[in-house]
């Protein structure tokens, strides 16, 4: 029997546990954008978007969308008290300047040294860098959330990235549909596995060698 993979929402839920009260957080496109729905009660998070807004809240209700109120994923935001707007120069000064506590990004590949590749599939010959390089280099903590393997079944956690890099040695933590892994000086440490997955099962889908944490446990929410 093959154990089930965690759905995208559960990956986002696990990432959300990492967000601490008072953190300034920038969420990327895809699974990362789901995290804001699952932040544990009692924690106040200040969301930043490179579209030029800080302290946004929920998405706009249908029929109340405003074209001048969007995040970097192009989603319409609801107006909330305390939100502020600024130009792209300031948006990225906040990122590069170390004022963002956590960014959550998607990835094509992450290496055993925490190198991130997430902007271009080489076969396309062109790609979108967007704000990923700035976020990866500037945020205090970089969490990658993604599927553990790609659609063809290739491992995305590798010894060395073969795709063009976004930023070397920047990833702190990887949350996938089967594992929670941290990037340490000695390599990648496996802390949690999805229910029904052993460390060996996760290793079989991982190109890089994993170090098993002494307190290895199931992903808990």
């Amino acid at each position: 029997m093959v154990a089930e993979r965690l759905p995208r929402e559960v990956i986002a839920m696990r990432v959300a546990q990492e967000l601490q009260d008072g953190d300034v957080v920038n969420l990327g496109i895809g699974i990362p954008s789901l995290c804001s729905q699952f932040v544990p009660e009692g924690r106040t998070i200040f969301y930043h978007s490179e579209s030029g807004v800080l302290n946004y809240g929920p998405m706009a209700e249908e029929g109340k969308e405003d074209q001048d109120l969007i995040n970097a994923s192009g989603q319409f935001l609801a107006p909330v008290k305390g939100m502020s707007f600024f130009d792209s120069g300031a948006a990225f000064a906040m990122i590069r300047g170390g004022h963002i506590d956590v960014t959550v990004l998607g990835a094509l590949q992450v290496s055993s040294k925490g190198d991130l590749a997430n902007w271009m599939i080489p076969s396309r010959g062109i790609g979108n860098v967007g704000g990923a390089m700035d976020l990866a280099v500037g945020a205090k903590k970089v969490i990658v959330s993604m599927e553990h393997i790609d659609r063809e079944g290739n491992p995305k956690i590798v010894d060395d990235c073969t795709f063009p890099l976004t930023c070397p040695a920047c990833v702190d933590m990887i949350v996938t549909d089967i594992a929670v892994i941290s990037v340490q000086n000695e390599g990648l440490v496996l802390h949690e596995t999805a229910p029904g997955w052993s460390a060996a099962d996760v290793q079989a889908e991982t190109d890089a060698k994993l170090i098993i944490a002494s307190d290895l446990k199931n992903v808990s929410l």
Partner: peptide
């Protein structure tokens, strides 16, 4: 004056 996130690259 700009409005909301329409400021972004326009502002620079």
């Amino acid at each position: 004056s700009f409005r909301g996130t329409s400021m972004n690259f326009n502002g620079v």
